[in-house]
C-alpha cells in the first residue's frame, strides 16, 4: 500500500487545485456583497473579503479533499473486516511544515489586514464633520460647520470625506450604512468617530447594528448622498 502513496498524493493534489477553484466559485455565489460600493472604503473592504474567500477555498479544499479522498480510497472494502490500516503515527517534518506554512500565511493576511485597516481609517484632508446622535429608536444629525440645526435625515455631499462624530443618548447603538460597508458603535458617555467618504449619489438607509431595545430592528434613518451644489442648496434651506 505504501508504495502507492505517490499516486494517491498526485491525484489528491490535482483534486485540491480543482476544488479550490470550485469552492471559490461556490462561495462567490453564496456570499454576495451588495452591488453598490457606495464609499471610498467599500472597494478596499470588498477586495479584502475576496482575498479571504480564496483563503477559505484553498484551506477548505486541502482538508476536505484529503478527507474525502481517504473516505473513498482508504475505506474498508468487503473482506477487509479484520484488516488494520498502515502503521505510521507521525512525521515531524510534516508537522513542522503545517505549523510554519499556516504561520506564514496568517502573517501575510495580517499584513494585508493592517494595510487595509490603515487605508479605510486614514484621516483625510478637507474632512466635513457630521455629528450623529443615536437614541431609542431614532437618529439625529447636526452639521457644526454649517450652522445650528438638527435633522432626522442625513444629507451629505458626494466625494467629500466625512468625519462622523457620534454619541448615544441612552444605550449602545451602531452606525451602519450597508453600501458604505464600515460601521461604528455609539456609546453613552463617550464620543466615537467614524471616517467614510461617500462616492455614490443616491438614497440609502442607515440601520442601527447594535441591539438597543424594543424597536431596534426599525431604528433606521434616510441617508441622501447628493452633489455639492444640491448639498449647498439643502444647507441654505435648513438655515432659513
Amino acid at each position: 500500500m505504501r508504495s502507492n502513496y505517490r499516486r494517491h498524493f498526485l491525484y489528491a493534489g490535482i483534486l485540491v487545485v480543482v476544488f479550490t477553484l470550485v469552492i471559490q466559485w461556490v462561495l462567490d455565489l453564496s456570499l454576495p456583497l451588495p452591488d453598490i460600493q457606495g464609499s471610498a472604503q467599500s472597494a478596499a473592504i470588498d477586495n479584502l473579503i475576496g482575498q479571504h474567500v480564496w483563503l477559505i477555498a484553498g484551506a477548505g479544499a486541502l482538508v476536505l479533499v484529503i478527507m474525502g479522498y481517504s473516505i473513498v480510497a482508504f475505506r474498508a472494502r468487503p473482506g477487509d473486516e479484520d484488516e488494520e490500516g498502515d502503521y505510521f503515527h507521525g512525521h515531524s517534518g510534516l508537522e513542522i511544515a503545517w505549523t510554519v506554512i499556516p504561520l506564514i500565511v496568517v502573517t501575510i493576511y495580517g499584513v494585508i489586514g493592517v494595510q487595509v485597516l490603515a487605508q479605510v481609517t486614514a484621516p483625510q484632508d478637507n474632512e466635513m464633520t457630521v455629528e450623529v446622535e443615536g437614541l431609542q429608536w431614532s437618529w439625529r444629525f447636526a452639521y457644526p460647520e454649517h450652522g445650528e440645526f438638527q435633522t432626522v435625515e442625513m444629507v451629505v455631499p458626494v466625494n467629500r470625506p466625512l468625519l462622523l462624530s457620534m454619541s448615544a443618548v441612552d444605550v449602545l447603538h451602531s452606525f451602519w450604512v450597508v453600501e458604505w460597508r464600515v460601521k461604528q458603535d455609539l456609546v453613552p458617555g463617550i464620543t466615537t468617530e467614524l471616517r467614510v467618504t461617500p462616492t455614490e449619489v443616491g438614497e440609502f438607509q442607515l440601520r442601527c447594528a447594535e441591539l438597543c431595545g424594543l424597536r431596534h430592528a426599525y431604528m433606521l434613518a434616510d441617508v441622501r448622498v447628493v452633489s455639492q451644489e444640491d448639498f449647498d442648496a439643502w444647507i441654505d434651506e435648513q438655515l432659513e
Binding site: 500500500m1 505504501r2 502513496y5 494517491h8 484551506a59 482538508v63 484529503i66 478527507m67 481517504s70 473516505i71 482508504f74 475505506r75 474498508a76 477487509d80 484488516e83 488494520e84 490500516g85 498502515d86 505510521f88 512525521h91 510534516l94 508537522e95 503545517w98 505549523t99 499556516p102 504561520l103 496568517v106 502573517t107 493576511y109 495580517g110 489586514g113
Partner: peptide, 25 residues
C-alpha cells in the same frame, strides 16, 4: 489570526490519521 495555527495542526493531523487507514463508517 494566530489561533489558526494550532487549529490547523489539528485538522492536518486528523486527515493524516485517515490517510492510509481502513476506514469504516
Amino acid at each position: 489570526l494566530l489561533v489558526a495555527v494550532p487549529t490547523g495542526v489539528k485538522f492536518f493531523s486528523w486527515v493524516a490519521t485517515m490517510w492510509g487507514g481502513r476506514l469504516r463508517f
